Amino acid sequence: MTRPENKDKMPVLMIKRLLPLLILVVGLLVVYSFGWHEFLSFSALQENREVLDGFVRERGLIAVLAFIGLYTVVVAFSIPGGSFLTIAGGFLFGSLLGGSYAIMAATLGSTLVFLAAKSAFRDFFHKRAKGYLRAMEAGFHENELSYLLVLRLVPLFPFWLVNLVPAFVGVSLRNYVVATFIGIIPGTFVYASVGNGLDALFRSGGTPDLGIILKPEVLLPILGLALLSLIPVVYKKFYKEKRT
């Protein structure tokens, strides 16, 4: 029998669990209500490139922190614009530094989403997972890092979706952070290298090709890395079958 004091505590615990996710949802609504997401465009970057370039030269550290902060917020609030910001990072800071800042910010923003979703919905989905879903969850846990690396490396699923799903199946925070950090490295530096040549592209009146990640010469090496990350899964399965 549930004690009265426990019943009183339940709404408070529910609010605490949902609060981080509610903050992210409200933030997303505010961004779209004020139209701030429209500033994440190449036309806006082209119009303000001289101002931004001067700001980076004169206020280097502040510019880096502002970029990382903005990128983190965009990812945490699931605002479309991660690819644009990665290209902008390459444009403002160069391929190596811009890509590195983007990786740090994307990992931090993704982790915030993961923690908020895990706090709000993990128990709800776990209690209702039965049969095939429970077996799939158990299988995922046996090779968390490998599966997460594949999800991050292969650009088949939306970035925001890959941020959320691991939280629902109870992936560990350590594996999530490691897989996110490593898995986004190849694609991030591809886009940052595009940004590094953006000034010449603007002068010629062209626009960046966001589909570059799907070109065979770029996609095939990434798919190769994804296959390599599945080697532990294949080995475990082969080892188990050999023992039985």
Rank of each mutant, 00 (worst) to 15 (best):
D8W: 14
S95T: 10
A105R: 06
K236A: 08
W160F: 15
V154S: 09
D209H: 13
S146L: 00
P166N: 06
I87V: 10
I62S: 14
S33A: 11
T207N: 13
A129T: 09
D53I: 12
S100W: 00
E137Q: 08
A44M: 12
R134Q: 13
A88E: 02
P166M: 05
W160T: 09
P155L: 08
R17H: 11
P208W: 07
P4R: 11
A135K: 13
F77Q: 07
S204T: 10
F77P: 03
Y191G: 09
F91Q: 02
S43E: 13
V31L: 14
D123Q: 05
P4C: 09
R128P: 00
G139Y: 01
F157A: 09
T180S: 15
T107C: 08
K9G: 13
G170C: 07
G205V: 11
I182G: 10
Y176W: 06
G211T: 00
S229W: 09
V194E: 12
F238P: 01
E142A: 15
R122E: 07
T207F: 07
F140T: 11
L65D: 07
V162E: 02
S146Q: 01
N175E: 08
A76S: 13
G109V: 03
L214C: 04
R174I: 15
T86V: 01
F159I: 06
L201D: 01
K242Y: 11
Y235S: 03
V150D: 01
V218P: 02
K215Y: 05
L145M: 12
A106W: 05
L70F: 04
N143F: 05
L228G: 11
S146P: 01
Y239E: 10
N6H: 14
I103S: 04
M136V: 09
V165I: 14
I212C: 04
L219C: 10
T207A: 15
K130N: 13
R122Y: 12
V194R: 00
V26T: 07
L145N: 05
A88S: 10
S119A: 15
V171F: 10
A76Y: 07
G89M: 01
F202G: 03
I15S: 04
F238Q: 12
L70D: 04
K237V: 15
H37Q: 15
A192G: 14
G81V: 03
S172V: 10
G81R: 00
V73S: 08
L173C: 04
S172L: 07
F189I: 03
G69N: 11
V74T: 14
Y101D: 01
V51Y: 09
R134D: 14
L61I: 15
P216T: 00
G90K: 02
L97H: 02
D123G: 06
F114C: 02
Y32I: 08
G205K: 08
R152P: 06
F202N: 00
I213K: 06
I182K: 11
K237L: 15
F189C: 08
M1D: 12
T107L: 07
V64Y: 01
A226I: 07
M10S: 13
F125C: 10
A117E: 05
M10E: 15
L21T: 14
E144W: 02
L112M: 13
A179L: 11
T2Y: 13
F114I: 08
L92P: 02
Y239C: 04
R152G: 09
L198M: 00
R152I: 03
L96H: 00
T2F: 14
H37T: 04
F91D: 04
L149A: 04
I231D: 03
P4L: 14
R134P: 02
G35R: 11
N163K: 10
E58R: 13
L173H: 05
D209F: 12
